[in-house]
Design a protein around this nucleic acid. Sequence first.
DNA 1: CATATGTCCTGAGAGC
DNA 2: TGCTCTCAGGACATAT
Length: 289
Amino acid sequence: MPELPEVETMRRGVALIAGSRIRGVRRPPSRLVPIQITPRLHALRRRVIGRRIESVGRLGKRIVIALDSRDRLVIEPRMTGRVLLADRGEAPDREHVRLVFELDGGGRRSLDGRRLVFWDSRGLGMVWLLPPEDFARRLGPQRIGPDALGITPDELRLRLAPSRRAIKVALLDQKALAGIGNLYASEILHRARLHPGIACCELRPIQWRRLHAMIGEVLEEAVALQGSTLADGTYRTARNEAGAFQGRHRVYQRAGQPCLQCRRGKIVRLVQVQRSTFYCPVCQRRRRT
DNA sequence: CATATGTCCTGAGAGC
DNA sequence: TGCTCTCAGGACATAT
């Protein structure tokens, strides 16, 4: 499930397409239900072919490709989407390829013929082409909070502290802060020694500071290790490699196993808002410290 | 307004 | 072995 570290890794892997022009857009034949493309493919083609890619950015868990038309191409991998870069002649797994952008090198001959590939096994992902007004409306600051990597301690507290929701649930709210998903929420709370069920409004200043520090620590480490590739193998980098942060997981999908921190607690799986949370009942007591 | 729940989708794994 | 069932969780629409 691509969260901030995985999306940032994919972004870095395709960042060199900045400067290229889009030469074609293809949707390979597939028996799968097509992913949602807005606008439809023929209109998308009309608006992107011949356009130059200005930059490849990230907004929370989305990749944002800015074009010289001022439109932005937004790719949402959601659960199982991958953003891959294929060299000329290289054929990525045909099976779940949903959309292909054919690129030139923007004057760099060695880059001609590259393709930006959107792969998605489950098909919940989306691709949007948004003019500036639509981008601002759909993905502006009132819809997407500040990036979890780089949020200030004050901002974190300001945005979450009034809520009566459990801290784990609030961390997943992309309007509050952007980029954290189910996996990293558990890992962050474990390192911050906070019980996932504590209401935000009950956290004390020292706990907010710890939480802020661990958001940065976990996400930075995960980006450095190119994200987490779980046993299902779904996530891959843009170059189709596995990430390595799964080796550093302390709680996620470790229910019943001993806590790697205290060695006494057994990791517990808890369900919150229909999603699994993992925590150590010894390290992450409900009681305030 | 804040918070909770249902929905989409496919592949893996469990159970028989 | 092969079938059926459940589950995984991104973001958003709808309900409370």
